[in-house]
Every structure is written in C-alpha cells, then in structure tokens.
Design a binder for these strands. Structure first.
Ligand SMILES: [Zn+2]
Ligand SMILES: [Zn+2]
Ligand SMILES: [Zn+2]
Ligand SMILES: [Zn+2]
Lengths: 151, 151
DNA sequence: TTTTAAATGATAACAATTATAAATAATAGA
DNA sequence: TCTATTATTTATAATTGTTATCATTTAAAA
C-alpha cells in the first residue's frame, strides 16, 4: 500500500503535480477497492468517510488527473456512469473485463490476451495501437450453475 | 436498403412491435449513415430533416428498442455520449473499432479477430461469452504520415 | 513577509437521458 | 360500423452525471 502510494506520488511529482491530502485520500480509496469498479460518486462517498470536508469536484478533478497520468483507466460498462479502475502494477495495457449479463458481476482478466490480435491490426490495418478496451458480455461461472439447477 | 428494412420489420413483428413511420425513418437514417457512429442527438437531427414532427424521446425509445433486439449496438467511446451502430448484415458479434487519439477518427474492423481469445476465456475462466466490445486506441494511418512529415 | 500560483469547496451551469402525462393512432371485439 | 383497449408518440419536466465558475485556502517562491 505505502509503496504504491509512494510510487504514485513520484509519478505526480514527475509532472509537477502534488499529492495533496485530498488526492492521497482518493488514491487510498482506489487502492482499498482495487477489485471494484467505482464511479466518481462511489469514490466520493468513500473518501468522505475519512475526509468529510472533501468536495465532489475535487474527486472528479483528481480522477481526471489520475486518468491523464495513466494511473487509473476510465471505463464505461454501458450504464450511464464512468468507472475508474487502477492500472495493475507495472501493466503496460489496460486489463480486460467479463461482465455477466445475468447478475451484473464484473470479473477481471489481467493477462494480456491481445498480443497477436494487436500485431495483426498493426500489420493489416496500419493502425499503431497504443491501448485497448476489451469487455466480454456473457454468463459468469456462478450464473451458469444457477441455470443448470433451475432447469 | 428496402430489403434490410423489410428484414428489420420482420424482426420487430416477431416480438410484436410495429415498424411505425417514426421507427422506419430512424432506421433509414441509421442505414444511410452506416459508416458513422451517430449519437442519439445526431440521429434525431437527421431524422428531423425528413420527418420534422418527430420527437427526441421517440428517437431515444426507438434506439433503445433496436438495441434490445440486437439490431443496433450501443457503444461509448469515452466522450459522454452513447453512439448507435447498426450490426453488419448477418454478423454474429459486434464489430471492432480503431479510435485515433490524434484526429478522433473511428475506423471499423468487421473481421472477428477474437475467436481464439474467446475460446480461451471460455476454457480458462469458465465464462460463457455472448458478445464483446473491443476498441483499440492509437494512431491511424493518416496521422502516422502527418507525424513523419512534421518531424 | 509579501507575492504568486496551485488546489480546493461550494455551487451553478450544462448536457445527456429518462419519466410523465396528454394526445394520437392502431387494433380488436361487439 | 362503433366502441373499448392498447400501443405509440409528442412535448415537456425532471433527473442525473459531469464540468465550469469563483471565492477561499494552501503551498511555494521571491
Ligand atoms: Zn477492472
Ligand atoms: Zn453472473
Ligand atoms: Zn462501428
Ligand atoms: Zn488520426
């Protein structure tokens, strides 16, 4: 935890941004909920628990800043809200998601499955890939079992 | 054109929906702008040109309906708007997109590059894939040339 | 310390989307 | 056909997520 905060602090400093108390509180919330996919509002409410004086605008600004520095990725699962997802330690690219259409759960795939696909895209379409967003929609393991049971 | 409208009409009827004049006008706009990625507002303005009496809410409802029937796919490129994209004729899955971070252009990949990846996901993660969303962010062919020129 | 710039908090403004209710059109039954 | 019922649409209000504004605070520089 502390190490990762320290690292993020350095990333901010390298672009001459400061890790203010508000920003640190926000980053801590993101770290403590790394498995989740929090909306700005979610983050705001969680940060408020430890630092009640923080404003919603500051949370939005912080998340925007962290996005620009590629510390978090902004993602949208189709409900009207943006969600903010910490990059995995040392990850070059954004990780992938499995969204269950039955229960709404979101699972993560950290492994980069797209190496081959991306070289094809570069070669055959002449498009220089910098990053990607890949989400699978389907039925999670748990819901598959449920379906079998109830049939 | 007429064939595809006829087909969509049947898809609607099969779920006991009607192809009202407003819905037809909306579908026509989508067909005429198949290469584009129109927002609800975009569609509304274009439909209004031929059927000025249509209301924005109707366009939203129609797009929602077409989404449910998998006639169009709703996609979000990270600006705050949903965009609506007709499924390619006979396509099983949603096609992919190449978004240029320089010029904002959006190119399409109709070929399904994910067959292997999806079978891995099914096998190794036990997730039953129904559909996907894949977008690459990077530099398009044209902007790569620009960069070379100006350097 | 004084000056300057950066960051914050409260709140207003904005834009996209959804909900509501009255009007219209289509459909089915008598 | 007329009537009743249902589906659909229009106009508009309400809601929601996000961004902009501005006065205030904090931190850094001179
Ligand atoms: Zn994630
Ligand atoms: Zn599930
Ligand atoms: Zn497309
Ligand atoms: Zn480009």
């Amino acid at each position: 935890m502390e190490q990762r905060i320290e690292k993020i602090k350095k990333q901010l400093h390298s672009q001459s941004y400061k890790l203010t108390p508000q920003r640190e509180a926000t980053v801590r919330v993101l770290l403590e909920h790394e498995e989740d996919h929090l909306s700005a509002e979610d983050v705001y409410l969680l940060v408020k628990e430890k630092a009640p004086e923080i404003g919603l605008a500051t949370v939005y600004r912080t998340l925007e800043l962290l996005s620009e520095l590629k510390i978090v990725d902004k993602i949208n699962f189709g409900d009207g809200v943006s969600r903010y997802d910490l990059r995995k330690e040392g990850a070059e690219h954004f990780h992938h998601h499995l969204v269950c259409v039955e229960c709404g759960s979101v699972e993560e795939i950290v492994e980069d499955l797209l190496t081959d696909v991306e070289s094809r895209v570069e070669k055959d379409w002449g498009f220089q890939v910098k990053d990607h967003r890949l989400t699978f929609h389907g039925v999670c393991k748990k819901c598959q079992v449920e379906t079998v049971k109830s049939s």
